[in-house]
Design a protein around this nucleic acid. Sequence first.
RNA 1: GGGCGCGUAGCUCAGUUGGAUAGAGCAUCAGCCUUCUAAGCUGAGGGUCGCAGGUUCGAUCCCUGCCGCGCCUACCA
Length: 644
Amino acid sequence: MLPQLESRIVSAVSQHILIRYGVDIAVALEQPRQASFGEFALPVAFQLARQLKKAPRAIADELVAELPSIDGVKTLEVAGGGYINLRLDRAALALAALSPAPVAAAAGDGKVIVEHTNINPNKAAHIGHLRNAILGDTFVRMLRAGGQHVEVQNYIDNTGVQVADVVVGFHYLDKTTPAQVHALIAADKFDYTCWDLYAKISQYYKDNPDSLQWRRDTLHAIESGEGELAELGRLVADAIVECHMNTMWRLGIQYDVLPRESEILHLKFWASAFEQLKERKAIYLETEGKNSGCWVMPGSAFDENREDEDSKVIVRSNGTVTYVGKDIAYQMWKFGLLGKDFYYQPFRTYSDGHPVFVSTASPDGAAPVAFGGGRKVYNVIDSRQSYLQDVVVAGLKALNYHEQAANSIHFSYEMVAMSPRACVEMGIELSAEDQARPYVEVSGRKGLGVKADDLIDKLIDSALAEVASRNEDKSGDEQFAVASALAIGALRYFMLKFTRNTVIAFDFQEALSFTGETGPYVQYGAVRAGKILQKAGDLPDFAALLTPAVCARLLEEEGLWQYVLAVSRTDQALTSALTAGEPAHMARYAFQLAQQFANFYHDYPVIQETDADKRAFLLWLTAQFRAQLERTLGILGITVPAFM
RNA sequence: GGGCGCGUAGCUCAGUUGGAUAGAGCAUCAGCCUUCUAAGCUGAGGGUCGCAGGUUCGAUCCCUGCCGCGCCUACCA
């Protein structure tokens, strides 16, 4: 309810200023540093001072005297050099929270597509992939909480070099037949098997450069779809995708559709895009220089400062399309600009009933569903790929799809690296040079990194030891369920607490922590709030008991008022986190809310309260804390365990 | 060389279109379990916001230059 009040204040003030001074300015509304200054502050007098050539203090005095009364605002006062501090009508705010008006559904202004995860299906997921998926999934939850219609895509590059490399490992190095690979898939942790194999073949290429021909042959076979190598490619990619989906579902991460590169090839998405690009002269056939014989996009298209010789190759001189080219086609499909679509088949149904579909090339038995055609597209991809993302957007612009280009958002984030200490704990030997660095880059090729499932297992083990020692009366199953919730809470919060452009130097000690600014701290607050409500028994009829007079009387107590404010800020926090595009802001709000509750918990013994009105009010506040903590955690993809 | 990002407490990080006394967590030290769970709470110490200029009534935030670090800059994906 605070956002409505805020916009009421802003519009009332700006309207008054427009009429009184004939000045149209954007009125800023701040939260004062100290709670004793009031709930909101207007620095508008400072903004006006220059234009009106008048002292800020004098303007503030005038405004306070002349501003019309605003619904929900009790007093205005001038402070400091010209701040106008606002104090709210406390009872009114509490009563509004008591019986909240139903929030109008956001206008259906089109579908938002969020693409995240996008892990090469050739080995186990690692912590870097976790950051991508958790960031993407949380942003999806934020958008949905904000009323947006969101479609979640996870692009599967099942015909790329990385899959080919694992196939090379199986076929040429280990002489593994498709039947044997079937057996490996049926056994445990096929993604771990491939992790090691991928590191092995990468090293082999290094030692035997001639063997790179195997990769070229395999890549070719996979693209044609014929023969044993192609069969191996399908086996590996499909099985690994299953592994990734399982890993991500452990963290509560779901998708709506899995578009695959194999279908982009077979359905000739690129051919359609190529036609458009040629027709609209977005690319041209280079006839001289190092890129002679290639179709290229001029460097000036994606970077004004670039020289033409820095143009980007889209189609190689041998006629094959580069990754960027395929990505342009894929991005066009996301906006519904390609004039083509995939066919789809059910891939799996999550245990909560949500289905996910995978692209197929054939209309036979295709499911009657449709994807793509979004109004806005967020690509969750790490910042190292910003250059390629720029080229994709430039492609849309060159095709005259300016609106779509503007709505193509690279939701970038910095990589997860490993702290030198974490490397030591993993038994990884570091060069003296690497040891001196603040962090070391994760490398799938070197097999260097922390696997996602290993980390989750480690977190659950660690949480389980703690849960078991505190709750000996609970069954093993119950303990495990709680430990899992805490492990996921710790992991998701850890990945979210950093803002997007901060490099995370992964450290086991920090990631495994359950105290301080962590997910479990917030979960603990929600659990304790739940315990109070449980002990209180049947809750009274708050709306009947907490009359305006009762609220007004109790809210004279500054402490209680601050808690009412605290539980009223969730919408505000969501809006600002969405505006900033920072899931970290949502995480921080969750922590601050939990801190407020911890203080409340220690300040007010709810059950023992003898004043009936006050007890009801405290119970109501507790219920509010519980509800807001649960909701905020839900947006972060974190559940509240039954006990802790 | 060019592009992007970073530099804030011992460590890891926040810091909302420039605004009131720069904030958390961890670590350290001192306290708090007979009271709704101590995965918690209270308090203390700890800062030239990389450096130097500029704009402004006001700069951690904007501009310029410099220093240091990272990533990117493929006919690989």
